[in-house]
């Protein structure tokens, strides 16, 4: 069985505002194993970005970890990334866990050559001479199909796609066990997007680690992930193998979302989901999807549904399913 790399138990991460806490991630549980590409999917404001930032230990006011654990499992040690010391973070970042930010964020320092930035980020725990490190970096870039002379450029001399490829190279150079990618291709052109997604996938295959990718684009998840976590309004609605999520979704939200996606070559009339996601200052009682759900029952307004396993590795949090995985009633159309 594949080794477990990350376990998330009852994670609660809120945002402090003057009007109260925005419950961005509320009681979320799941594990991540070695060798998986996991997609975090959902609409804006569903908490997927908050969650991935927290996994990286990147919790900054007004974001606040309330309770729970996001345990990074490294060589038998547990490190709760929700409440972690800066010193501890420095030890695990880049080496065990690394982060690829949104392409449009321009994280590279515009006045420093790529070479210097690369060495600074990978050298910290790695006491190698500069010359040797440099040769290694060049070798690595070549293996990823990047021209080594990008190292001598300044970030603005490279296109957005090339910058993102350099950042991915930096993030994977020390062979981390977990790579987090937060909307890694948003705002990039589709051709470049495909190239970058392939690159992430190939590196994962090579390192046999796990890749967690956040995207609002279901197509991205369909193309490269093995497993999808569907989030809605700060909670997990459904987790399952990618193909099952697309072909046999259990949660009404997942089903409506998948059905609303237009497909080329198919002009069938499609419709979106009525209403809009709830305000997370005062989320609805019970299941958070109940105000928009076509299969709503009385219990949905009263009780928060628990996660049940329907088939191997396929979980859903919906009152349509009993604890033993049996369906209570048919889903309304």
């Amino acid at each position: 069985m594949a080794e477990k790399l990350l376990e998330i138990n009852h994670a609660q991460i809120y945002y402090a505002t003057l009007a109260g806490y925005v419950k961005a991630v509320d009681n979320v549980n799941f594990d991540i194993n070695e060798g998986e590409i996991v997609g975090l999917a959902g609409e804006s404001g569903c908490g997927k970005s908050t969650l991935i930032k927290s996994i990286y230990g990147f919790i900054k006011y007004p974001m606040k970890a309330i309770s729970g654990e996001i345990n990074l499992l490294t060589n038998g040690n547990k490190l709760n990334m929700l409440f972690v010391e800066k010193e501890e973070l420095r030890k695990v970042r880049w080496k065990y866990i690394s982060y690829v930010p949104q392409a449009s964020l321009h994280v590279l320092n515009p006045v420093t050559r790529i070479k210097k930035q690369f060495l600074e980020s990978v050298k910290r725990e790695h006491n190698v001479k500069e010359k040797e490190a440099m040769d290694e970096v060049k070798e690595y870039l070549k293996s990823l199909g990047l021209p080594p002379d990008v190292l001598d450029s300044f970030p603005h001399q490279l296109s957005g796609g090339m910058q993102q490829r350099v950042i991915i190279a930096m993030a994977t150079f020390l062979k981390p066990r977990i790579v987090l990618a937060d909307e890694p291709t948003t705002a990039l052109d589709v051709v470049v997007q495909r190239g970058i997604l392939q690159m992430l996938r190939d590196i994962q295959k090579e390192l046999k680690n796990s890749l967690i990718i956040v995207s609002h684009d279901m197509g991205v998840h369909y193309q490269i992930t093995h497993k999808i976590v569907i989030m809605y309004a700060g909670k997990i609605a459904e987790i399952g193998p990618t193909d099952e999520i697309f072909n046999n979704p259990y949660h009404p939200y997942t089903r409506l979302l998948i059905n609303s996606l237009p497909r080329i070559g198919d002009r069938e009339q499609r419709s979106g989901i009525e209403g809009s996601p709830p305000n997370l200052l005062n989320p609805p009682e019970g299941c958070r999807f109940n105000p928009r759900c076509p299969s709503k029952m009385k219990i949905c307004e009263e009780k928060i549904p628990e996660m049940v396993e329907i088939s191997k590795g396929h979980f859903v949090a919906c009152h349509l399913f009993q604890k033993n995985g049996k369906r209570v009633k048919e889903d309304a159309e």
Binding site: Y253, L257, S260, P262, G272, I273, S276
Partner: peptide, 10 residues
């Protein structure tokens, strides 16, 4: 948002 995109396209 993706879930309401189609309503506007329609």
């Amino acid at each position: 948002d993706a879930s309401i995109r189609m309503n506007i396209m329609n």
